[in-house]
Amino acid sequence: KHICAICGDRSSGKHYGVYSCEGCKGFFKRTVRKDLTYTCRDNKDCLIDKRQRNRCQYCRYQKCLAMGMKREAVQEE
């Protein structure tokens, strides 16, 4: 069993190059498709875990990228 590289929830498989849960997969897809931009209200180092993953979209998206999620993979779907 794999866990989500972004928030630690149960992974549903590899999405956009990274083991991730449905929540983070959908979040990344929406962000890329709609070309959304986020801002962090703190120091750009918010904790992203299962409980708090919805608290800061900026940091969640940065963690998706840092863990290796690929924007191109969304476009190719």
Rank of each mutant, 00 (worst) to 15 (best):
T31C: 11
L47H: 10
T31Y: 05
C40D: 02
A66Q: 08
Y16V: 11
K29H: 06
Y58C: 06
C21K: 00
R53F: 08
D9H: 03
L47Y: 09
C21M: 01
H2N: 11
A5T: 14
G13W: 01
V18L: 04
Y16P: 06
H15R: 08
R71Q: 11
D49A: 12
Y19H: 06
S11I: 05
M67W: 07
C4E: 01
D9I: 02
K14N: 09
R30C: 02
G8D: 08
K14H: 02
G23A: 06
C56F: 03
C46T: 03
G13R: 09
A5V: 07
C4W: 00
Q75D: 13
C7N: 01
L36Q: 11
I3Q: 03
R30A: 04
A73H: 11
S11Y: 05
D9R: 03
Y58L: 09
K29N: 13
R71V: 13
E22C: 08
R71C: 11
N54H: 15
D45N: 08
D9M: 02
E22N: 06
G8L: 03
C21L: 00
D49N: 14
G13C: 01
C64Y: 02
C24N: 00
I48G: 10
T37H: 14
A73W: 10
Y38V: 11
G26V: 12
E22K: 12
T37D: 15
M67L: 12
Y38K: 05
C59G: 01
S11K: 05
S12A: 14
Q57S: 07
I3N: 11
E76R: 08
E77T: 15
M67I: 12
D45A: 07
K50Q: 14
G68I: 01
E76T: 07
C4A: 00
G13V: 06
R53C: 07
R53I: 12
R41S: 10
V74A: 08
C59L: 00
D9E: 15
R51K: 15
L65P: 01
G23K: 04
K29P: 01
T37V: 13
Y16Q: 15
R30T: 04
Y38T: 14
S11N: 06
V32P: 02
N43D: 03
M69R: 00
Y38N: 05
R10F: 06
C7I: 00
Y58G: 09
Y58R: 08
R10H: 07
L36H: 12
Y58Q: 06
V18S: 02
C46W: 02
A73N: 12
T39I: 15
G26T: 06
G23I: 02
Y58T: 02
L65I: 04
S12P: 15
E77P: 11
R33F: 08
I6F: 01
K50S: 05
T39W: 10
M67V: 10
K50C: 04
R10V: 03
D42H: 01
I6Y: 00
L65Y: 12
A66G: 12
Y16C: 10
V18R: 03
A66K: 14
V18C: 06
Q57F: 05
T39H: 15
Y61C: 07
C40K: 01
G68V: 01
C24M: 00
S11G: 05
V18D: 03
K44T: 15
V18G: 12
K14L: 05
A66W: 07
H15M: 03
S20I: 13
V32L: 06
S20M: 09
I6R: 01
C7F: 00
S20Y: 09
G23E: 08
Y38L: 12
S12E: 15
F27L: 03
M69I: 03
C21Y: 01
Q75F: 08
S20L: 14
K50H: 09
E22S: 06
C40S: 01
F28E: 02
Y16F: 15
K44Y: 04
S11E: 06
D49I: 15
E77I: 14
C21A: 00
E72W: 14
K1Y: 04
C21D: 02
L36F: 14
I48A: 07
E76W: 07
E72V: 15
S20A: 14
I3T: 10
K29V: 15
C59E: 01
F28K: 00
G13I: 02
G68Q: 07
K50G: 12
E76L: 12
K70W: 10
C7V: 00
C21H: 00
L65V: 13
V32W: 03
R41D: 15
T39N: 13
V74P: 11
K29G: 13
S12Q: 15
C46N: 03
V74G: 09
E22Q: 05
V74D: 08
K50W: 05
A5D: 12
I48Q: 15
L36R: 12
G17R: 05
R71Y: 11
R51Y: 07
S20F: 10
T31S: 09
K14E: 08
Y58S: 11
G26D: 13
D45V: 09
S20E: 03
D9K: 13
M69V: 02
C46M: 03
K1L: 02
E77L: 10
K44V: 08
C59H: 06
C7A: 00
K44N: 13
H2C: 03
Y19S: 06
K70S: 11
G68N: 09
V74S: 07
S11W: 06
S11T: 05
A73P: 12
S11P: 15
T37G: 14
R53Y: 12
V18K: 02
R53P: 13
N54Y: 07
Y38A: 07
E76Y: 10
C7Y: 00
I48D: 08
E77A: 15
C4Y: 00
Q75E: 15
C46I: 02
G68P: 01
Y38C: 02
I6A: 04
G13N: 14
V74W: 06
E77D: 11
C24F: 00
T37W: 07
Y19V: 06
Q75M: 14
C40Q: 01
K29L: 12
C40W: 01
R10K: 09
E77R: 11
R71D: 15
Y16D: 14
V32Y: 06
A73R: 08
C64R: 01
C4S: 00
G13S: 04
C40R: 01
G17S: 09
R10N: 09
I6Q: 00
R30E: 08
K29C: 03
K29E: 13
G26N: 04
E72L: 07
R41W: 10
R10A: 04
G26S: 05
D49V: 13
E72F: 03
R71T: 13
C59N: 00
G17N: 15
G17V: 02
K1A: 01
C24V: 00
S11C: 10
R30G: 06
F28I: 02
G68K: 06
R71I: 13
G68T: 02
Y61H: 06
G17T: 13
K70H: 14
D49E: 11
L47I: 11
Y16A: 12
M67C: 09
G23F: 02
G17Q: 05
C4Q: 01
F28D: 01
D9T: 05
D45G: 12
